[in-house]
């Protein structure tokens, strides 16, 4: 898992491809791959709201950096 601040990363080993992050991202940052796992295709739209991290059942998404949300 990369840890560059401010860059959304998906831990592919943990991601089970449920699609929650893709469906509910308010900024439509993710796109589904063929296997259903998310790819960050629109990073500039990210508002760092943090909902993808909070709703990921597999702890597989990281916004990167320390601050998000509030």
């Amino acid at each position: 898992m990369e840890k560059a601040p401010g860059v959304i990363t998906v831990n592919e080993k943990w991601c089970k491809g449920c699609g929650i992050c893709i469906a509910f991202c308010p900024a439509k940052v993710f796109t589904a791959r063929e296997d259903g796992k998310p790819v960050v295709t629109n990073p500039d739209a990210c508002t760092r709201c943090g909902l993808c991290e909070l709703r990921c059942p597999d702890f597989a998404i990281s916004l990167g950096g320390k601050s998000h949300g509030e």
């Binding site: 089970k16 449920c18 699609g19 990921c56 059942p57």
Partner: peptide, 13 residues
């Protein structure tokens, strides 16, 4: 980790 729960299971959330 990773946990044993199924894809999309709410337990992890």
């Amino acid at each position: 980790l990773p946990h044993i729960w199924c894809p999309g299971c709410g337990n992890g959330i």
